[in-house]
Amino acid sequence: MDTQAIRAQMPTLVRGHVPSNVRSFKFNIFDGQPKVSTLGFHVDPKPFEGKVIATTDEAIVVKTGRAEFAVLDKALVTDVPDEGAKVQVEPYARRRFDGLRADTPEESTEFTADGQPYTVKRLILGSAPAKLPIPEPQCPELQELIHQLEQLPAPDGFRRITHLLVDAGARDFTVVDPSPSNIIATPPAIGFTVASAKFQGRVTVLYERGLDTYAVELHREGELVERVDEVFFDTLGQMLERLIDDGSWRLIRVQRLSGRKPVQH
């Protein structure tokens, strides 16, 4: 979508949909690019509702407030509603393995001096963690692999590698947590099942002690279908993207809440 062209067209597209006593209007563009806050960190947009007031070859314009609009990239929406339709729009938001948004505050139970419990919610601005649903391992190399998956960025620069795994439907996690004496005979590994348009099956990330690199294996119905050796930690996200990420996470989900009302003659 040509965002510069859309910006130039917006005054014409929203004409007749802004109150006469309002001198300006606001709009957000949703084109698959990460949103950045005024403080400079990535943020995940919230779902919203509105009315479709205009469409072009490249964009859908939704009125979301008195003088507020959203512009959706037509190539990314899951449905193209008619003008006049009321819709619910859900742009991409990073998620955790439990299905909740990754920016959901973390809750913990604390206790007062006299033993009374209370709930504390913690939210770090700019933080959207997706922690792997596995127990803390003993093997230092496995600990480092977990840290890298949770902290290193995916190639898009918006997600972490674990967000990439969530978007690929990763589940049924297993780990190989060897003792130091067995680290070569039984390499540390994390395994999981994915279900994306690019690959459906079992994925295993193994640590190769001799080369200090990783290997990634893909299994389908118990058979090895691909193995990539000598994957360095800083290319692990790129490799997993190539193997299992189908890109569907970029889609903007649009649900029609109502169609255009018929014209009364």
Rank of each mutant, 00 (worst) to 15 (best):
E49V: 13
K198V: 09
D82Q: 12
Q88T: 06
E150W: 05
D114H: 09
F25Q: 03
L224C: 07
I244S: 04
Y118A: 11
P137N: 07
L149T: 02
Q138V: 15
V228M: 03
L211I: 02
K198R: 15
P47L: 08
G169R: 12
A93H: 13
P105I: 13
V231S: 01
R96Q: 15
L145V: 04
L132V: 04
V77M: 08
V254C: 04
T3V: 08
T186H: 06
E136R: 15
V254G: 02
T186K: 14
V14G: 06
L152D: 06
L211T: 02
D98F: 11
H163M: 05
P135F: 12
R202P: 00
P140G: 07
S196W: 04
F199M: 05
G247P: 01
G65I: 04
Q151W: 08
Q4P: 00
K86M: 11
V216P: 03
R23N: 15
E226A: 14
T104G: 03
K51H: 13
R159W: 05
Q143A: 14
E144Y: 14
K121I: 14
S108D: 03
F27I: 05
V14R: 04
I146C: 02
R256S: 06
I183A: 08
K26S: 13
D245I: 07
G247H: 07
T56N: 03
R23Y: 09
P117R: 13
E136I: 13
Q151K: 06
P180M: 04
E221S: 15
Q4D: 13
H219L: 14
T235D: 01
I252D: 01
I146Q: 14
Q88C: 09
D114T: 11
I29F: 08
S37W: 09
K74L: 14
L257V: 04
V231T: 00
L257H: 02
D246M: 01
A5R: 14
F158G: 02
F27C: 01
F232M: 03
P262H: 12
V254D: 00
Q9G: 00
L13W: 08
S179V: 13
D156V: 10
G126L: 08
T186Y: 09
Q238M: 11
Q116M: 15
K121H: 11
I53H: 04
T55F: 03
E241C: 08
V166W: 11
L211A: 10
D31E: 09
P155W: 05
H42W: 15
V43L: 12
V77L: 03
V80D: 02
L100G: 00
A59M: 09
S24R: 14
E217L: 14
L165D: 05
F25L: 06
D234F: 08
T235A: 10
L224D: 02
E144F: 15
E230L: 10
T112D: 13
E221I: 14
E217S: 09
K74I: 12
E226S: 10
K35W: 07
L76G: 04
F27G: 00
V14N: 03
Q116S: 15
H265K: 12
M239D: 00
P135K: 06
A75W: 10
V61P: 00
S196Q: 03
I6W: 09
R227P: 03
P129V: 07
R95K: 15
R171G: 08
F111H: 10
A93R: 13
Y118E: 07
A67D: 04
N28L: 11
L164G: 05
D212E: 11
F25A: 10
